[in-house]
Design a protein around this nucleic acid. Structure first.
Lengths: 338, 338
DNA sequence: GACCCGGGGTTTTACGTATAACGTCTCTTG
DNA sequence: CAAGAGACGTTATACGTAAAACCCCGGGTC
């Protein structure tokens, strides 16, 4: 590890400036008003610049007992959605002098690796998506302040939760489709054990159950375009009343459905209406553009970070689900339209 | 910061097990063969488990003088591509006992924030994408071992570089299109100052210049579907010989072109051939599926990490660009086809 | 019987920082 | 003129860990 001559420490700076190490710490930590003269302070700053001094964060963290660093655990990086969550969380964090480190449950890096072994950073707290379920046991091991995103409020090990109003999302989609006259549905469900997906399935079933004459078929699919295509092809080929609308747990799944329909020679929305969830850029890249529910990922991240800051501060985070909004585009129409 | 009773330290474990702190460190660090008896070792392990002991990483990092943590700087999280880079890098890192922390240049978090202020983790080294240009000055400040991805090998501040064979990518695309008979080109260029995009532009111009009777128009566009749509609409509406092929710097840009063409009433590939670069999932979600160049993002990440490990070890990283592969799909055809 | 050796530990130190506690020396104020 | 009260520092300490240096004891070797 022969890294040239070793990095300068605050003591080196002190020597160069002809003062004590304590003085360096005071000046550079901006705590010198009335304790060090302006000229001395400037001498210290100059010496630090000359030597290219950077404080050793490990030492600082040890001394201070905290790191002002927070871990964001996301299920995967492939998604625009979590990019937005990160952006929001990082913005709020920066405003409060915190940094955010990302831990994507890596697929193929080995099962359930301990995030704390992997991200060696010492942490003050954790924000975790419920979709990254394998990481949770490891997280519980530490007694770190924890905020769960999209997770069962009543069963999250006592951790604070921040949720999207997913019930309302399902309500808006079903109202829209029922209003258009649809009665026969296919639910293309994400193949991931997570509270948010359970809620979608349960809520959709309940909503439709309340309307006589409806049918609901469910097909699980991995959250990938080609996985969804296969699942959709299989489900639409099955016997029974053919669905006229497909409700997808995710925009990516919807893209897979488009692909399946092209291969089956069916057209959107004439033969089949399709809805997504997320409102990714992908949604408007499809032809026709996708009717979907817009989730405000950045707001989600901001609220998550605010909640964590509250926990760190021994306050109770403010509750309330994050509102969502149906965006109607070209992929939905009355059944049997021209 | 009243976090319940404070976390147990190795000294607490020592007391509980009736041994010295040093013995705890030896046992838990797996360095006790021949220094501590098996029964004592087990007693220590049991005590550690009982107390829920986790070593304080800040202290360990300080003592050891390294963190086994590496920073990966990426331009943005929105892209599947860098997710792949991360996955590859993290896999190799894990094999060598390292962790990887992500620093996405956050858009909207404020310009050119210091990655080391933001990611408070102490670091052993950095892998940076050349697209994240704003972070570079900050990185240069520290004398951290640095590997640059997709960066000018001759001008990278002496840092090691790992590059995709982007010249070959351009060659394969132009050979394909020229072979089909195309002579009039539009280059939809990424609106990002980065070496890799400069090379694409230069190489494309050089290639076409060698063939008499060709024309090349260039339109810069932000890397987003809607930005690309606007740029493409403007460029195709301009006077002069209408291009028969659009070469895009990125699959996302290609998606924007599709969208523009739909609005202009043009069809792919009959009226216009389109090519991308990356081979994202998006490429096969488009209709028709996109002819593009496949970049092996995971291999890219692996090679980047290997290079950094080499630098940390005072070895010279192995050179050689990463090969790429043209994937021909339905978006390219001879000009003026039925 | 002097010597060394290995097992089984303990004592001590150092990593680099932040800050509490402690000195001066000078100037004001009642 | 005694007593604060700044201004301008310094000295000393602690954070939790890893590991070097040391110590003791029983047994084998010449």
């Amino acid at each position: 590890m022969a890294r040239g001559s070793t990095r300068p420490t605050s003591r080196d700076v002190a020597q160069a400036a002809g003062v004590s190490q304590a003085a360096v710490s005071l000046v550079l930590g901006d705590k010198w008003r009335g304790r060090v003269s302006e000229t001395t302070a400037e001498r210290v700053r100059q010496a630090a610049r000359d030597l290219g001094y950077r404080p050793n964060l490990a030492a600082r963290n040890l001394r201070l007992g905290h790191t002002r660093t927070v871990l964001l655990v996301v299920p995967a990086l492939t998604t625009e959605f979590f990019a937005g969550v990160y952006t929001g969380a990082a913005r709020v964090a920066a405003d409060h002098g915190f940094g955010v480190v990302l831990y994507p449950s890596p697929e193929g890096v080995g099962p359930a690796r301990d995030p704390f072994a992997s991200a060696q950073a010492a942490l003050d707290g954790v924000i975790a998506s419920s979709m990254a379920a394998d990481a949770l046991t490891a997280i519980r091991g530490d007694q770190l302040p924890l905020v769960m995103l999209d997770s069962d409020p009543s069963g999250s090990l006592g951790a604070a939760t921040v949720n999207l109003d997913i019930t309302d999302a399902v309500r808006q989609v079903t109202d829209h489709l029922l209003g258009l006259g649809h009665r026969h549905f296919l639910h293309l469900a994400a193949d991931v054990p997570s509270w948010t997906f359970e809620v979608r399935a349960r809520e959709l079933a309940a909503r439709l159950h309340a309307v006589p004459g409806t049918t609901l078929r469910t097909a699980p699919a991995p959250i990938s375009i080609d996985g969804a295509r296969q699942a959709a092809e299989a489900a639409l080929g099955a016997p029974g009343p053919r669905p006229t609308a497909v409700v997808c747990d995710d925009d990516k799944l919807a893209a897979g459905v488009y692909k399946a329909l092209r291969r089956l020679g069916l057209r959107v929305p004439d033969d089949l209406s399709v809805t997504g969830l997320d409102d990714l850029a992908l949604a408007t890249a499809l032809d026709p553009e996708l009717t979907t529910v817009r989730l405000d990922a950045e707001l989600f991240g901001e609220r998550g970070m605010h909640a964590l800051l509250a926990v760190l501060d021994d306050r109770t985070p403010d509750g309330g689900d994050i509102p969502v909004e149906l965006v109607v585009r070209g992929s939905t129409a009355p059944p049997g339209a021209p």
